[in-house]
Design a protein around this nucleic acid. Structure first.
Lengths: 208, 208
DNA sequence: AAAATAAACGAACGATCGTGCTATTGTCAA
DNA sequence: TTGACAATAGCACGATCGTTCGTTTATTTT
């Protein structure tokens, strides 16, 4: 079992490029066949349906993200150092991922948010995993004493995701070169807030 | 000049629904003609090309956002009150806009970020206007003494945009009912930070 | 009411979409 | 080297895509 998986990998590689620029709906079999030098039917046989191809492409995108952004920081000490490295890696990924276009997962997240099905399930699971990773990282920082003990790690993950989306909009859509600077400053503000020794997110001690 | 603009408006209304669920690339002439009860060619004649139809739909989406979210808060006093009302209106819009799907502008922002052309220009201009509005709102809050004088209003707008994107992902893609709660808390944290009397975004007073 | 103009239709075009078939090629183990 | 089987190609299909054109029907103006 060798030739099959090799071409399948080549197909998925090209599929990621196509998906990053043209979106999930632009990932068409004819175009993909043309770019890989295969025939439409030959390519089609590898996946059985367009939906399965899309699912495979999404999974491949996740794998790439994990390999490029997640795995490298796992060697670092838990807590703030790992979180900081992850952040910097993520901003770098968003700005120039290993595809010609932007991050396909981010794009697909807004493309599929209203169309139930396996594709949306796949992308939703990916986003849930990512948020869980951030949340756990923040939890480790709390345990290590880097972050204040009353930090809401779920909220922390929510905010970080927001920064990432805002970055994509600023850097890719608007093309503002100072976008990365905003990202870093927003992230720094968030980290500083998480470090704060006492509760400084509520006006007073009572909430609502 | 009456009948033409009336049906054109009806077409655009339906186009917004379609666009919100199926994205800009899903906004197809055949489908739109079917839903409006027109013939493909009859509909087509109103716009001259698909791209012009898409541009018109995007402009209509902007107009709807302005009417529903921006305009109502302009009556409120400048500064924090107006900003707070705008925020709440925006979160409401993101959660349940007047379309069956999510906010088309947000979706298109990530869909088009790598495809230059009139469409991207249109959406980029819209996002720039929105950020300028937020920035000015924050500036008014600074002038009114509601926010600290050294607040970076551009960064403030950047962060707010991030919250909005994170909301869409949480509420629409993941379907988490507590999403709106996260949004409010993240927004409250941002406002509190902007209110802080002295600089609390940098660790110390030096900014390097 | 008649003439002028605007709006919508119907049919067709070339292209591309996703997806079935059958046949042919290539690869790997015996 | 041959036989088994995986991998790919070729072709065709119905559907839909955006677009053009000529015609017909509504609307507006005179």
């Amino acid at each position: 079992m060798s030739k099959g998986v090799r071409t399948r990998a080549a197909i998925l590689d090209e599929a990621l490029s196509l998906m990053s620029t043209d979106g999930l709906s632009g990932l068409t079999i004819g175009l993909l066949a043309e770019r890989t030098g295969l025939s439409k039917s030959g390519l089609f046989a590898h996946f059985g349906s367009k939906e399965q191809l899309q699912v495979a492409a999404l999974q491949e995108a996740q794998a790439s993200f994990t390999a490029h952004v997640i795995r490298p920081v796992l060697d670092l000490p838990r807590g703030l150092p790992r979180l900081e490295a992850f952040a910097e890696g993520w901003w770098a990924w968003n700005r120039s991922p290993p595809f010609p276009g932007g991050c396909p997962i981010q794009a697909a997240s807004l493309e599929l948010d209203d169309r139930p099905g396996p594709l949306r399930d796949e992308i939703a699971a990916a986003q849930r995993r990512l948020r869980a990773f951030i949340q756990q990282g923040a939890g480790m920082a709390v345990a290590a004493g880097h972050f204040r003990p009353d930090l809401d790690c779920t909220l922390f993950a929510f905010q970080m995701v927001g920064i990432a989306f805002a970055q994509t909009m600023t850097c890719r859509l608007l093309g503002e070169p100072e976008g990365l600077d905003f990202v870093r400053r927003a992230w720094r503000a968030q980290v500083t807030d998480a470090q704060g020794t006492h509760n400084q997110t509520g006006e007073t001690s009572h909430e609502h």
